[in-house]
Design a protein around this nucleic acid. Structure first.
Length: 607
DNA sequence: CTAGGGTTAG
């Protein structure tokens, strides 16, 4: 009885005449369910308002839902105008209005406001299980912790706390507000979970940098669910964070096996693989993945450029940048972080200045803290400390601890003088509150090289008064998929005996080729004076490297991850070991990679 | 009608 109406436009498929019969009304409704053109919907709406005021409300409702339906682009202003005409909006109507706001790019706040309007609109309608995912999404985006908590209270009051969707939204919300404990609490107490539940919880942990916990949860998950590509995406990021190369490779193989080509060839996933391989120290595989990608976007290029930069391959990074531009991609703010960081790791001062200017004038990109960070560090470490200070005081952004710290680091390396160093030191303490151990060590080294032992002592007292705890150096190495961790001076490893015996042998061989320890960066001068002459050889990476040598397979590089930066002496020693034992050693620093091979390092001793 | 990023300086 209802004549089918084809939804294609144009030509106009529905005559807008003054027919108000039941038949026409049905045709109109049917058409509305198929129409995907917002301008045409508006047209019909206007017509309906003119010709059949009696059907106004029901049509408005219908139009309203159609207009806000996800297949049609949102027109929030129009939606709110229509909504105002609806006499008694039901829960469904409120929900889709809230959804529209939550999905919008610039009016998420209105989702929360509308939710409040809904609550106070009368007792006959109220939120239901569909409402909260939208509201919580907005809260998560806006970091509105208290608003979201109120919604949570409402959820409990309405007895919706067993709904999977609602709980998943709660986990995501709490996690993005930084309340991992609350998120976990919701996760633990849920009566029922879905793949998404595990995914949001795993991703929450990854985002918070709790990679091991994320992997543990990933393990647990697999007894009840098969991971999907979303899970794998998070796990790849966890591998990148941990530097867990073999697990990352396993995930890569797994993705190729279970995912169809649409997913396996996806830009997002492959960009993550590029990033993961770079962060795990395998630039070669990263390049392979990148070159084989069928489709790329700005993020893919950025991952590769940043990867090159991390490994000190400035030329490759800049070539990659040029190629990207050549292929018509528009570099963004992150691209330039990569480019500037590449210049920084090679000490390319004039190029760095040039790209910084290009970014501002040619690409109209406002420099942010990270850009300034690269440039300041580049200038200062290359010896242009005055220019770096000048930049810091004229920056459009407030300098942060990282910037001051890199200045202090440069002051130390370049012997910039005690007065200047003290001033920079003060800035850091102002910002950080004084519990960052690294800067005390730097300043004491500066005092030490100026032979101001008195100040060294005072500083040491200050440290113990303020209970500043030195961050212990820690290095890890992955052997057959298992991570082995070593702290400085550690003797807790099951194979400690062999490790220390090998360290003795290494020492002998080093001395036979004329090695002399470099104490210039020994942690604190008085440790030296108290006879801890061996503290250098007990640096955590030495233990890890020794263990790596014990377990080494011919031709396979030894990969080490260190939480701090390598010191001069370890850098020397590692270079020598790479030639004495004919082995490639790849070290991921706090800031970058060093590839030691045949007695030299990829950083060319500039780091 | 309901759930799940975007990357970044040392």
């Amino acid at each position: 009885m209802v004549t089918p109406v084809t939804p294609c436009l144009p030509p106009h498929p529905l005559p807008l005449n003054n027919d108000t019969t039941h038949h026409h009304h049905r045709r109109l409704l049917h058409y509305l369910t198929q129409c995907t053109s917002i301008s045409h919907l508006k047209q019909i709406h206007a017509h309906t308002l003119r010709t059949s005021p009696t059907q106004h409300n029901s049509h408005s409702l219908f139009l309203f839902s159609r207009i806000l339906h996800s297949s049609i682009s949102y027109d929030l202003n129009y939606a709110f105008r229509v909504f105002d005409h609806i006499e008694e909006p039901n829960t469904f109507m409120w929900n889709i209005l809230i959804r529209a706001c939550a999905h919008s790019s610039d009016r998420k706040k209105q989702a929360i406001l509308t939710y409040h309007d809904m609550l106070s609109s009368g007792a006959s309608v109220g939120p239901d299980k569909h409402t909260f995912p939208f509201v919580l999404k907005a809260c998560a985006y806006l970091f509105c912790l208290s608003e979201g908590k109120q919604a949570h209270a409402q959820i409990l009051k309405l007895g919706l706390d067993s709904d999977v969707y609602v709980n998943n939204s709660l986990i995501h919300f709490y996690a993005s507000c930084g309340c991992l404990d609350y998120a976990r609490d919701v996760f633990e107490k849920m009566p029922e979970r879905s793949v998404v539940t595990w995914n949001v919880m795993i991703d929450a942990l990854v985002q918070a940098g709790e990679f091991e916990s994320a992997l543990k949860l990933f393990d647990e998950m697999q007894s009840s669910f098969e991971p999907d590509w979303y899970t794998l995406q998070s796990i790849v990021n966890a591998c990148a964070g941990l530097g867990a190369l073999s697990l990352g490779m396993w995930v890569h193989a797994y993705v190729m096996k279970i995912c169809d080509s649409n997913v396996a060839d996806g830009v997002l996933l492959n960009s993550s693989f590029v990033e993961m391989y770079c962060k795990c120290g395998s630039l070669e595989i990263a390049e392979q993945v990148f070159e084989r990608m069928h489709k790329r976007n700005v993020t893919s290029w950025n991952s590769m450029i940043i990867g090159y930069a991390m490994h000190g391959q400035a030329e490759a990074a800049l070539d990659c940048f040029a190629r990207m531009v050549n292929e018509g991609f528009m570099p963004n703010s992150v691209t330039f972080v990569g480019v500037l960081s590449a210049c920084n790791h090679r000490g390319m001062v004039s190029e760095g200045r040039k790209y910084f200017d290009t970014m501002i004038t040619d690409y109209k990109i406002e420099p942010v803290l990270e850009h300034y960070g690269c440039l300041v560090d580049l200038l200062a470490r290359a010896g242009f400390i005055d220019e770096a200070l000048d930049l810091v005081s004229n920056m459009a952004v407030k300098p942060d601890v990282v910037i001051w710290r890199s200045l202090l680091d440069a002051c130390c390396k370049k012997n910039a003088g005690v007065e200047l160093s003290e001033e920079v030191f003060k800035k850091i303490i102002e910002l950080e509150g004084g519990d960052c151990s690294g800067v005390y060590v730097l300043l004491s080294r500066i005092y030490g090289s100026a032979r101001r032992w008195n100040d060294v002592g005072l500083l040491r007292k200050l440290m113990s008064d303020k209970r500043v705890i030195k961050q212990p150096g820690c290095s890890s190495i992955e052997i057959d998929g298992v991570a082995h961790e070593f702290f400085a001076g550690d003797s807790s490893h099951p194979q400690t005996k062999e490790i220390y015996a090998l360290l003795d042998t290494i020492e002998e061989r080093l001395e036979s080729v004329g090695y002399v320890p470099d104490f210039s960066q020994a942690p604190l001068v008085d440790e030296l004076e108290h006879g801890k002459k061996h503290s250098l050889r007990l640096h955590s990476e030495r233990l890890a490297i020794a263990f790596g040598l014990l377990k080494a397979k011919p031709g396979v590089p030894i990969r080490i991850f260190k939480n701090l930066r390598v010191c001069n002496d370890c850098h020397n020693v590692t270079k020598l070991i790479s030639s004495l034992y004919d082995v490639e050693i790849i070290v991921r620093d706090r800031a970058r990679f060093h590839h030691f091979k045949r007695g030299s390092c990829s950083c060319l001793d500039y780091w």
